[in-house]
Nucleic acid binder design. Structure first.
Length: 317
DNA sequence: TTGTGTTTTATTGCCTCC
DNA sequence: GGAGGCAATAAAACACAA
């Protein structure tokens, strides 16, 4: 595809502020030649005299200026020759030099938008068309945006991974705590039966199965709702996690719901709306059951308040 | 040398702002 | 309606492996 360039002119000469627009109005082959700079840019430009404007399909690699260091019009004797060559090599795109790109990069870092005056200034200094400067900035903004999207994606991905890890850990801890409750309930029931204790009047109202189910359901709903809240509110993760673990009644980190307190076992006291809590408390909230000592520990420990010999169950690995 | 993938330069059409 | 920005795209320039 040929490059296209607008013909500027008419009274008042060129309109360097509308390079792109004019390109769309009136199209003639552009061919990369700065036609309206036939009067060649300011010779004070540090970039003139280099390969800045012309690359006639040289075989040199990028940024290798060896074959591109001579401006076609620097050598008067060959002026027409180069001009002729220029028009005969019209379908080539020309890459900017390293110096030009570095200059543009610095300019872009300072300000990524381009006022008309600045565009003209850059064009003069680099010996390029204002239109080329505008295009370069446009493309550079597009590249910057793409890069920024990549960075944003990576940041979000890292954040997501952290949250997921925390969430998974909370789920595991929740499962562990539920298992602990099940085990303690079962252990208590076995102990009661082994001691030949007849169920209290309250216990008679509930089968063993329904007791466990009630306990399990109560804990499950509470804990899972907390976990869900934690997962849905990442910024409150630490505090929410603290809610799960810490008790308003226990500042030392012992789980309130499952904390081990002195045995006040008397199921006959459990009545009314608090029956679940009362069912739970006497059975496994004791630090002492019978003659056995039960260490009071946090949920992170492997003891969970039952005799050391009970560990032979292998329940806690 | 050649095929292929990537980067850079440039065009086009559409949109918004004034 | 002009001016300029942006997204999509084309195509040349380039890198690199086979």
């Amino acid at each position: 595809m040929a490059n296209w360039r607008a013909v500027r002119g008419g009274p008042g000469g060129s309109n360097v502020n509308s390079d792109l627009l004019e390109t769309r109005k009136l199209k003639i082959p552009y061919h990369g030649l700065p036609l309206d700079s036939m009067h060649f840019p300011d010779s004070s430009s540090s970039f003139l005299g280099s390969r800045s404007m012309v690359s006639f399909g040289g075989t040199a690699g990028p940024y290798n200026s060896a074959s591109l260091t001579v401006h076609p019009f620097d050598q008067e004797d060959n002026g027409y020759k180069y001009l002729d060559e220029y028009f005969n090599q019209t379908e080539k795109k020309r890459r900017l030099t390293v110096d030009q790109v570095e200059f543009l990069e610095r300019s872009f870092e300072a300000e990524n938008t381009l006022e008309p005056e600045r565009k003209i200034q850059l064009a003069k200094e680099l010996g390029l068309q204002p239109r080329q400067i505008a295009i370069w900035f446009q493309n550079r903004r597009a590249r910057w945006k793409t890069k920024q999207l990549e960075i944003d994606y990576e940041t979000l991905e890292a954040s997501y991974n952290r949250l997921k890890t925390d969430y998974d850990n909370l789920l595991k801890e929740n499962e562990k705590l539920k298992a602990e409750v099940h085990f303690l309930v079962d252990n208590t029931l076995v102990r009661d039966q082994g001691n030949g204790n007849s169920p209290s009047s309250d216990n008679q109202k509930l089968s063993e199965g329904s007791r466990k189910e009630a306990i399990s359901d109560t804990i499950s709903e509470d804990e899972e709702s907390k976990v869900s809240r934690v997962a849905s509110k990442p910024e409150d993760l630490s505090s929410a996690r603290s809610d799960v673990i810490d008790s308003p009644h226990n500042a030392d980190g012992i789980h309130s719901s499952y904390s081990f307190e002195p045995d006040h076992s008397d199921l006959s006291q459990s009545e009314g709306d608090n029956w679940n809590e009362e069912l739970l408390r006497p059975a496994y909230m004791s630090s002492k059951i019978g003659d056995a000592d039960y260490p009071v520990v946090s949920a992170n420990s492997c003891y969970f308040g039952f005799p050391v010999e009970d560990h032979a169950f292998g329940f806690w690995s």
